[in-house]
């Protein structure tokens, strides 16, 4: 993980199969000073976190090939110790208690229900990445 504490240096991985969602998050976070990389599913996200350093991952639930819960369980499994504590913000259309509980068990640090406004997104990312608003 990068040892940074300012948005200008903090690096966020956005994992969502929707190109529109990725673009929306990227736009909001880049304006706030974050560096943003993207992945379209859990498999691509795992490849990215194993090859690059990130301060936070934002992950959707429903994605093809590997869903967000599976990705988080794999991330937290300790199979790759360097990334097992990477902060994770899960953002999904799923608003049921069961999904939120599963997110906690899988290892999400926080869970938001879509649609998420830019300011709310940036605020949660700052808190979880440990950077000043």
């Amino acid at each position: 993980m990068a040892d940074t504490a300012t948005p200008a240096k903090a690096k966020v991985l956005v994992v969502d199969d929707s190109s529109l969602v990725r673009l929306y998050y990227r736009s909001a976070l880049e304006i706030a000073g974050f560096e943003v990389k993207q992945a379209i599913n859990g498999i691509e996200a795992m490849e990215k976190v194993l090859s690059e350093s990130f301060d936070l991952v934002i992950v959707d639930v429903n994605m093809p090939r590997m869903d967000g819960f599976t990705f988080l369980r794999l991330l937290r499994s300790g199979a790759a110790a360097d990334v097992s504590t990477l902060p994770a913000l899960m953002i999904s259309t799923e608003s049921g208690e069961q999904d939120m509980a599963e997110a906690r068990v899988a290892g999400a640090n926080f869970y938001l229900v879509k649609p998420v406004a830019e300011a709310e997104l940036v605020r949660h990312v700052c808190v979880l990445a440990g950077v000043a608003l």
């Binding site: 429903n62 994605m63 869903d67 819960f69 599976t70 799923e94 999904d99």
Partner: peptide, 12 residues
């Protein structure tokens, strides 16, 4: 399904 992985497999 309550399982995201099952929903994803069904969609595909």
């Amino acid at each position: 399904s309550q399982e995201a992985s099952v929903r994803a497999a069904a969609i595909e």
